[in-house]
Design a protein around this nucleic acid. Structure first.
Length: 585
DNA sequence: GCCGTTTTCGGCCCGACTGTTTTCAGTCG
């Protein structure tokens, strides 16, 4: 790839610089500055090039003159001389050792400098040969821990999908509630509560009158395979799934401050505490400490934010990038409420590759409280299994009409719209003719094959589909599968602008491994004036509930209910769709 | 290296848990 490094690439570079400097034993405030900048860059809704063009790099939190210059060099040349010099002193294989749980930069630095250990391999060898036992501060337990940690690092090198983490956390919560009915409050916290697309480990927070008994119940849950640590109010375990789970138990009076603290993000916490310090208050999970040592506890998060004159900030926005400014200016968005979703606009039946009949899908959709759904089976195209051609679409229309007639006969206002998920070919054409598409209520157009096109081609492909008068929704715009394949490398600004101009909706696909568009792209296209939809893409009645994942992703992208067309209701949505048929291509 | 309602210098978020220890450094979140 010759294209400029992405925000993600540059954020990672900042983290690597920070780790390297810390290993080298440099001033901790210097390397922490790089970490802060990395945090900010990672959460930016627009590309760093965009900020630089506007001369706004130095307005970003944690980015000053020096780091702005380094970002500039990276954008221009794809390289960073400063980093290359660091690499000569500390090779990448040394940084690899940081992946071992319990081994941090100080330890890596000592191992590297004092013993010349420069990779996971040499670390394991040294530990097995007993060479570490002679080092000051290394006892038998430490060496044992390192050996165990290496195994963990090599085996468990992946993050868990939001969906799996939610299920796992909710199961733990149910078990603990059953085991200890006197639990006051219980919630998951951490990146799961912020609804990140993948989760490193679970954080479960409990308020109870006797916290220690909760910790005991937690470490003895049936699906706990190993207790890593266990104290009076905290414990860390590994679950059968390999997932790490942390429990924090405390008194109910501290619930608010603790929930805030353990929800993070780190960047959010740091900014929160700086604002508290400016008011002479030191904040921790226990509450606010005044200069004279007296404590102010917070039973709710609202109380904690109120103590520094801020409204409650939704967890999904707590990434330390813009939420405090918005809160101070009383401009926090009223985020999408999943209860406002009145329709699911993308689902499949056994007419194509779904696992249930239209009736079965619809019956389940009704239990979710929707007004209507759109049945969007695949178009016949290349690898798509059992996709529908014009003739089968006509047959399917009859079944849809029949179901609607049954509803009408029962005075049930629920209805099923007849749509399709038509393939976008590699050059941006559609796999069904305009004539066929014109006969359908709603058209979702999605890319499924040839997702590794050059950026210009991938973008042009989607732009052509967006401008097609029959296309109402672009489904899973990048086609990415989290942890499996990168999506198409599209110019999200161009896509967002075109969607805003034409009125074509951009989808947040709720598939657990899709979440496509992702939250940052959602934020960006909304800023550019586009409207989004949140759809399940269900292939089975059970999948309809996935919409929760898409809704959380939209919330992370600062989406309000108003900007999510699923909340509009039938009349308004269909009026928009009809008007769109006249958009200029 | 960044930053400002104690501003252009002198600070920089906070605490639990662990291991190897007689008082604490390192890791983690």
């Amino acid at each position: 790839m010759t294209s400029a490094p992405s925000n993600h690439d540059i954020a990672n570079m900042m983290y690597t610089i920070a780790d390297t400097m810390e290993i080298m034993g440099e001033d901790r405030f210097r390397y922490q500055a790089y970490r802060r900048a990395g945090d900010a860059i990672q959460e930016l809704p627009a590309t760093l090039s965009t900020y630089r063009e506007r001369g706004e790099l130095e307005t970003l939190p944690g980015v000053g003159k020096a780091i702005a210059a380094k970002i500039g060099e990276l954008l221009d040349t794809g390289k960073l001389t400063f980093y290359e010099r660091l690499q000569e002193k500390v090779p990448a294989t040394v940084l690899d050792m940081l992946r071992v749980p319990g081994v941090g930069p100080r330890t890596v630095g000592r191992l590297y400098r004092e013993l010349g250990i420069d990779s996971l391999t040499t670390l394991r060898k040294a530990a097995e040969e007993g060479k570490l036992n002679n080092v000051k501060g290394f006892g038998t337990k430490t060496v044992e821990g390192i050996l165990q940690g290496i195994a963990v690092a090599e085996q468990l090198d992946r993050r868990t999908l939001l969906f799996d983490a939610l299920r796992s956390a909710e199961a733990i919560i149910t078990s603990l509630r059953q085991a200890i009915p006197s639990i006051h409050s219980i919630s998951y916290a951490g990146s799961l509560r912020r609804a990140r697309q993948t989760i490193g480990d679970l954080d479960i927070l409990v308020a109870a009158d006797e916290p220690t008994t909760v910790v005991q119940a937690f470490t003895t849950l049936p699906n706990v395979t190993q207790v890593v640590s266990s104290g009076n109010e905290k414990a860390t375990v590994y679950l059968h799934s390999g997932l790490q789970a942390d429990l924090i138990a405390l008194k109910p009076v501290m619930w608010g401050s603790a929930l805030l603290h353990f929800t993070g993000s780190q960047a959010h916490n740091i900014r929160f505490r700086e604002l508290a310090l400016a008011r002479g208050l030191s904040f921790s999970e226990h509450g606010f400490k005044h200069a004279d040592g007296t404590m102010l506890t917070c039973a709710t998060e609202e109380e904690a934010y109120a103590a520094i004159d801020l409204p409650w900030i939704p967890p999904e926005l707590r990434e330390g990038v813009g939420e405090f400014e918005a809160a101070k200016a009383k401009r926090l968005p009223a985020l999408l409420d999943i209860a406002d979703i009145k329709a699911d606009l993308h689902m499949h039946s056994s007419w194509s590759d779904g696992k249930a009949s239209i009736r079965e899908m619809v019956e389940t959709a009704k239990t979710l409280g929707y007004q209507f759904v759109v049945m969007t089976d695949h178009s016949a195209y290349l690898s798509i299994t059992n996709g529908l051609d014009a003739a089968r679409l006509q047959q399917q229309a009859l079944e849809v009409a029949e179901i609607n007639a049954e509803f009408a006969a029962r005075n049930d206002t629920f209805r099923v719209l007849h749509g399709v998920e038509v393939d976008i070919t590699p050059d941006g054409a559609l796999a069904l003719s305009d004539e066929v598409l014109a006969g359908l209520d709603v058209v979702v157009a999605s890319p499924h094959i040839n997702l590794r096109q050059p950026p210009e081609k991938a973008t042009e492909r989607l732009l052509r589909a967006i401008h097609n008068p029959h296309v109402d929704i672009i489904g899973h715009p990048t086609g990415r599968l989290i942890g499996e394949r990168e999506g198409a490398d599209i110019d999200i600004d161009a896509i967002g602008r075109a969607a805003a101009e034409t009125g074509t909706f951009l989808e947040v696909n709720s598939g657990p491994d899709r979440l496509d568009l992702d939250a940052l792209s959602v934020h960006r296209v909304l800023d550019l004036g586009a409207t989004i939809v949140v759809n399940s893409d269900a292939h089975h009645p059970d999948h309809l509930q996935w919409i929760r994942l898409g809704a959380l992703t939209a919330r992370r992208g600062w989406a309000t209910s108003e900007r999510v067309a699923n909340t509009w209701g039938y009349d308004r949505l269909m009026e928009w769709v009809r008007r769109n048929d006249t958009k200029v291509s």
